[in-house]
């Protein structure tokens, strides 16, 4: 059997570690694992899981790019690149017409504008406020005693949008508890939370300038309720991704790995 020349992108985020293995421009393996407290170990575990998924070993890897907040502890990587650049490359790979990315990850939220080649033209980032992050939604899911994955589908059954004014995690949690206490339906509160987040992140998008096509990446992109709320609040149409949007950063890292290896870097 001929030896595969494979490339890996490892995106060590605050909540999830995403890894993609690529060969000849195609994704041949991937893995998403929960990020633990040992950053370096998370990367190794993600890499091993994705290699196993691809049926390969570490010896098959020609080049590895690490991204995400864990990239600073990645001895397995040949190169590190910020997740802003990686999400751009990843979104361009998944949907080449992408001009704007909404990236909602575990601990921050970004608006990224791309040029025709998938390079970053401008970006804005919110890391001061928890609104628009996976962690915020995780706390809210906990209030409703549901899993993070259930929040989106639940919100689609809402009959009205209840206003949730706080986007501070602590105060939003108290506000949600108060709304539940007065007998409001959980789904109406959840849709209110999604709308509150959408409005909050709207400012970032006006700063970079929204252009079609719009791609939604990061773990929160899997939340159908959030996606619907963003489309309504920003009056945009978000493209249907042909790959898992949570993998966008890791895909971008793998694309960069292949390109760097070909350029001899």
């Amino acid at each position: 059997m001929s030896k595969v020349t494979a490339f890996a992108g490892v995106d060590v985020g605050s909540l999830g570690t995403k890894t993609v293995i690529m060969a000849e421009g195609e994704i041949i393996g991937s893995a998403i694992i929960r990020t633990g407290i040992n950053t370096e170990e998370n990367g190794w575990n993600g890499l091993n899981a994705a290699l196993e998924n691809a049926g390969l070993t570490r010896d098959d890897l020609a080049y590895v790019v690490a991204t995400g907040y864990g990239r600073i502890s990645a001895p397995y990587a040949n190169k590190t690149v910020t997740e802003i650049t990686c999400h751009a490359k990843g979104a361009h790979y998944i949907h080449p017409q992408t001009k704007t990315i909404i990236d909602m990850g575990g601990q921050d939220c970004k608006a990224i504008r791309l040029d025709d080649d998938g390079n970053v033209a401008d970006f804005a980032m919110n890391d001061k406020c928890a609104a628009g992050t996976g962690r915020f939604l995780e706390v809210m899911a906990n209030v409703f005693k549901v899993s993070l994955d259930e929040l989106g589908p639940l919100s689609l059954s809402a009959t009205e949008v209840l206003p949730v004014s706080s986007t501070c995690t602590v105060f939003a949690e108290s506000e949600t508890v108060s709304l539940l206490a007065r007998g409001e339906k959980p789904e109406n509160i959840i849709v209110g939370i999604h709308h509150a987040i959408s409005k909050r992140v709207g400012g970032m998008f006006s700063r970079v300038g929204v252009q079609n096509d719009v791609f939604f990446s990061g773990g929160v992109a899997k939340n159908v309720g959030m996606r619907k709320a963003l489309e309504e609040a920003l009056q945009i149409k978000i493209v249907e991704p042909r790959k898992d949007p949570q993998l966008a950063g890791a895909i971008g890292a793998a694309v960069i790995a292949e390109s760097a290896w070909k350029r001899g870097r």
Partner: peptide, 10 residues
């Protein structure tokens, strides 16, 4: 520093 690094990459 992440923003600054991304700007340099850009």
């Amino acid at each position: 520093l992440n923003r600054v690094s991304a700007f340099v990459e850009m």
